[in-house]
């Protein structure tokens, strides 16, 4: 396949994943804001922006940390390059550019998702319809994933798409954990208090992990086991361990098809070994923030190596 197409498929799925994760993060922030007073809510909205790296832009352009201002900035502001609408648009533009690499079903799901959301996000979003919009974003992303699963040949194209998904997802989970951990750090001593629990629940909700976590950790809700869950639990589809494992298996499948490994394979393996050999206690001891910073850096390196090894650009 063309290097440009590999790049297009890779980024199409990165954008879709990022759009979905942004919506989930916003949803968690929204739920938290609903249950808190306005002053706390302001902090919560700000932390949503910090997590996705949009706080500086927002502060400069809007500056008022209210629910409607933040949600509209994140969801539909055309001047915000990281808005969900712009990401959906980017995903669709990439899909159009690689139209010959994806099935008709995948294209139609992407195109329909874009049409639906463009329509929904044409007007300002208020509290009343925010839930519907966020649900629609999740649903559209799910439809594309389903079309992928059901119609795409398991070949190089599929592998590049999946690598985009898992690189983006592990990056997003890592960032959520990093920011939230910081925000919540002062309250670690308050483990077990209701305020603390609501915060941690929001973290789990933003990675769609609340139910899985509860099921695995009946009744417990503490920073350490949540961090363990999000970093090391290979059963949870948004954990760093899970994403890393999938990424390596897609890379391996690509190496089988092409008959050779590239530097990206070695990098991904090293990262995997490091994660595998760490326990949550070691990670917390050495500093969660340092650990995550390093992890995000490694992920970036792997993504760059993939782009280089497979000639994404001239």
């Amino acid at each position: 396949m063309l290097g440009r197409s590999a790049n297009g498929v890779f980024w199409m799925f990165r954008y879709l994943e990022r759009a979905e994760n942004t919506a989930r993060l916003l949803e968690a922030g929204f739920q938290l804001a609903l249950t808190r007073g306005a002053s706390v809510a302001t902090e919560e909205w700000r932390s949503v922006l910090v997590t996705i790296g949009q706080d500086p832009d927002f502060a400069e352009k809007i500056g008022e940390y209210s629910g409607p201002a933040v949600t509209n900035f994140i969801l539909r502001d055309r001047e915000n390059p990281g808005s969900v609408m712009n990401m959906i648009e980017n995903a669709r533009t990439n899909a159009r550019a690689v139209r010959t690499a994806i099935t008709r079903e995948v294209w139609e799901a992407t195109n329909e998702g874009w049409m639906t959301l463009k329509d929904m996000l044409a007007r300002p979003i208020g509290e009343k319809n925010l839930g519907d919009v966020l649900a629609a974003i999740r649903q559209q992303a799910t439809l594309v994933r389903g079309a992928m699963e059901g119609t795409m040949l398991r070949n190089e194209i599929f592998n590049f798409a999946r690598m985009g998904t898992y690189i983006e997802r592990s990056d997003n989970t890592a960032r959520i954990l990093d920011v939230k951990y910081y925000v919540l750090l002062p309250s670690i001593s308050l483990v077990g208090s209701s305020l603390d629990n609501a915060q941690w629940e929001a973290v789990l909700r933003s990675v769609a992990g609340i139910r899985a976590y509860r099921w695995l950790n009946a009744g417990r809700m503490d920073a350490r086991s949540i961090a363990e869950f999000l970093i090391l639990d290979g059963r949870f589809p948004r954990s760093l361990a899970f994403c890393g494992g999938k990424l390596r298996s897609n890379l391996a499948s690509l190496a089988r098809e092409y008959g050779e490994e590239t530097p990206a394979h070695a990098l991904a393996r090293e990262a995997g070994v490091r994660l595998h050999q760490s326990s949550i206690d070691e990670i917390i001891e050495q500093g969660l923030h340092e650990f995550i910073t390093e992890f995000i850096g490694e992920t970036l390196k792997i993504a760059d190596a993939i782009a280089e090894d497979y000639r994404f650009t001239a």
Partner: peptide, 8 residues
Amino acid sequence: IAMRTTRG
């Protein structure tokens, strides 16, 4: 005239 593929 050659096209840039993922394998060269």
